[in-house]
Nucleic acid binder design. Structure first.
Lengths: 229, 229
DNA sequence: ATTAATAAGTGTAAAAAATACATTTATTAA
DNA sequence: TTAATAAATGTATTTTTTACACTTATTAAT
């Protein structure tokens, strides 16, 4: 099947690793699993897997994410390759890291038991397998860049959310407090949100209006580019 | 050598492809070569090669770039992976694309003859091998994002350059005319440039002062981040 | 020596965007 | 009816960005 000239070239293992981010209303968290094979059996690690010959790299990442979370249609982007020769003591494995943004409640307690997985705050990460710590650091940085100009962050929130939840998310990602009036004005002026009649009554007597993200308006806006933060 | 569990996994070919950008004083160009193996023998393509077991992915990209240009210490960054199953009819090859920024005069006529290579303007690209056209498009977009906040673009210019050459570079990357006064003010206010006594006399009787990029000042600035354009 | 030609170099006013900041409002539990 | 609590809202100030045109230095031609 392969061209003659290709046969003499080195073949190696290609893996994907998924940095899965969630938002608990207060902090950004990453979902980690206890590794179930050697080397590094039992260590906390990112969810990963090998790319098969019959699937694209993206499909492999999607498959690995689905295997852990059961989720499909998840926001996911490539972070980049990690290709040091000795990064994996088990063999020559190049890994392509992907980051995914999921709604934290979509990942149930049951799944956490089943996979020996756990959400960790980004500044309380355990010792991690191989170069997975570096992957998470880079993904965190990439997430910041991403949400500054793209509405990716919305996928970390429930589909209906209050303005204060949205602000809380940006504050968590940028690790700094923002001014409520300025934030509200800016985000509403973008015209990406649709205000609902409905109110969220969990956190106050008055209740805060719920909003949804309006993908239509985003698609129009995104052509000429814009800045969220 | 490899762990037992890894052995049953699919092994595949991993390649690197280099998008090499240059600036001729007027337009951004990409350096392409005539492919010297099947499949696609004789087609215009990016310079590429397979990642060996004994080298990191980054080292492979560096090696491939050096093989074509003879250059070392070149500004190079990973663009991302291209991993569709059938992207290369010769076999299952995942490619990691890198973009490099070089001074166009560092690449001699002699090398162009030797490698059957040629500089192409980005809007006059020939038909390209596999997904290399898409790689170049993505790299062009990435270059824009990059130079808006990082001084990477300077590596496309000679080490001494005039303000109008620098402006010309940004105009080429963004494909739009900019105001000379505003551009000059902004770029000088950043404090990244050192003005020399020397003048460039090629393009005017008066002559334009030459500047050099001051890496020291950049390193200080880069911690808190800044915006060039 | 004077003039003509050419690109280099420079400043200011207006508009837009970002920031700093505090009070009123709606609701419910006591 | 009152107290408590978070939600909602506007304005003045500062900073940044944009728009815009004339003077200067130099040399080649006369």
């Amino acid at each position: 099947m392969a061209t003659e000239q290709y046969k003499k070239e080195d073949h190696l293992l290609l893996a994907v690793d998924c940095i899965i981010f969630g938002f608990d209303g207060n902090r950004i968290k990453a979902l980690l699993v206890k590794r179930n094979l050697e080397p590094g059996l039992g260590k906390w690690s990112l969810m990963g897997g090998f790319v098969k010959k019959t699937e694209s790299v993206k499909d492999a990442a999607t498959r690995v994410l689905n295997l852990l979370t059961g989720l499909t249609d998840v926001y996911m982007e490539e972070l980049g390759s990690f290709g040091e020769v000795n990064r994996d003591p088990g063999g020559r494995v190049v890994s392509i890291a992907w980051y995914a943004l999921i709604k934290i409640n979509d990942y149930s307690e049951a799944l956490m038991k089943e996979h020996q997985s756990k959400w960790f705050e980004l500044d309380h990460l355990p010792v991690l397998l191989f170069d997975h710590g570096e992957m998470i650091l880079q993904a965190k940085e990439r997430l910041r860049e991403k949400v500054s100009a793209h509405p990716a962050g919305f996928t970390l929130l429930p589909s209906k959310f209050t303005l204060q939840q949205l602000q809380g998310l940006y504050e968590a990602i940028y690790e700094k407090k923002m001014d409520k009036r300025n934030f509200t004005r800016r985000v509403l002026e973008l015209g990406l949100l649709k205000k609902l009649e409905e109110k969220e009554k969990g956190t106050s007597r008055k209740g805060a209006y719920l909003y949804v993200f309006d993908k239509n308006k985003y698609d129009k806006l995104s052509k000429k580019g814009f800045r969220i933060i």
